[in-house]
């Protein structure tokens, strides 16, 4: 745990150094940190042996919360928790339904529900402006209307701070009775019931937590890119989250951010040139990681450094 924390600290330092040295990467890194927070949620569910193919719906919920509310209430420091709150409420509603299911049902029901949200965002044009999306109104920070450069730095700092906060919380959670019970769902769910514990409730807690993190990530994306579209909630976005989780390695909270930063950097440099084959490359790499490096990037790094994941 201490070694993991050290690596995270070094990682944060490196990110900060990169952001200072190459200012335009700040934007990319902010998005990567936001995605990493959402991926932490995927990681929780993977602990229980479950995978959600619709998790971007919570990202979209957070992002649209910002887009809808910002004109009336532009305070970023309120918008961020509100996005988490609304995503959490949606997570509770959806979760009460999906935690009754496991495996393929869990994955596909999440996908189906996210498709519903996506199609509503796309079709309810008078509310959402459809695929054009919504331009996010300029936000204030603790009441201050900051110049653009300062705002970018602030968003980077907020994303880094929240990443550290949620990373720490998730790491603690995975070692707690709740987290260990969650992992028990994967290997011997029946035993939880024999212990008098509701496996559904254990999974629901993780699901809502993951939805909140998805929502927070969505608010950060919205405040950084200043433009939200239904695409944020499309299945390809959900696929990306799953991809990052596996790429980074499901073994550690640090893996989520390792995967997210690697993913976003590669995307900035490569995605434009292979736009039509982007999903294909992701799918191919995903297969390779699953079949040949199941520990992901974190597994490789931890192996090198002899850290117990």
């Amino acid at each position: 745990m201490i070694a993991e924390g050290l690596i995270a600290l070094v990682g944060a330092g490196v990110l900060l150094a990169v952001a200072i040295a190459v200012p335009w990467l700040k934007f990319v890194l902010t998005i990567a940190l936001a995605k990493g927070i959402a991926v932490l949620g995927i990681l929780l569910l993977l602990r229980a042996g479950q995978v959600s193919f619709g998790h971007a719906m919570f990202l979209a919920t957070g992002a649209y919360t910002v887009a809808f509310l910002a004109p009336a209430m532009p305070e970023a420091l309120l918008l961020i928790p509100l996005g988490g709150l609304f995503a959490g409420l949606l997570g509770l509603l959806v979760g009460l339904f999906v935690v009754r299911y496991r495996d393929i049902f869990f994955g596909m029901l999440n996908l189906a529900i996210s498709m519903v949200l996506y199609s509503l965002l796309e079709k309810l044009y008078h509310l959402t402006k459809g695929t054009d999306g919504i331009r996010v109104a300029r936000a204030t920070y603790a009441g201050f209307d900051l110049p653009r450069e300062t705002q970018e730095w602030l968003m980077f700092a907020i994303a880094l701070g929240l990443a550290a906060l949620f990373g720490t919380l998730v790491a603690a959670y995975l070692r707690s009775p709740m987290g260990r019970a969650l992992a028990g769902i994967k290997t011997r769910e029946t035993r939880l019931e024999f212990l008098g514990v509701s496996a559904r409730r254990v999974l629901l807690f993780a699901y809502v937590a993951s939805a909140v993190m998805g929502g927070i990530a969505g608010t950060l994306v919205a405040l950084t890119t200043r433009h939200v579209t239904p695409l944020l909630g499309y299945w390809t976005s959900s696929g990306e989250l799953v991809f990052i989780a596996i790429l980074g390695g499901a073994g550690s909270a640090v893996g989520a951010f390792l995967g997210a930063v690697a993913f976003e950097l590669v995307r900035v440099y490569a995605a434009a040139s292979v736009a039509d084959a982007w999903q294909m490359i992701l799918g191919g790499v995903l297969l390779l990681v699953i079949l040949f490096a199941p520990g992901g990037l974190w597994g490789i790094l931890a192996g090198r450094l002899k850290v117990r994941a």
Binding site: A172, S176, P177, G184, F194, L195
Partner: peptide
């Protein structure tokens, strides 16, 4: 019916936690 990927002591501690109803998400098991 053991949690096969958990250590023996984690199995036992989970049972004790279940009995005591202690489900803090942030304190180590």
């Amino acid at each position: 019916q053991l949690f096969t990927e958990h250590t023996v002591i984690e199995n036992a501690a989970l049972a004790l936690a279940a009995h005591a109803g202690i489900w803090s998400p942030f304190v180590p098991l």
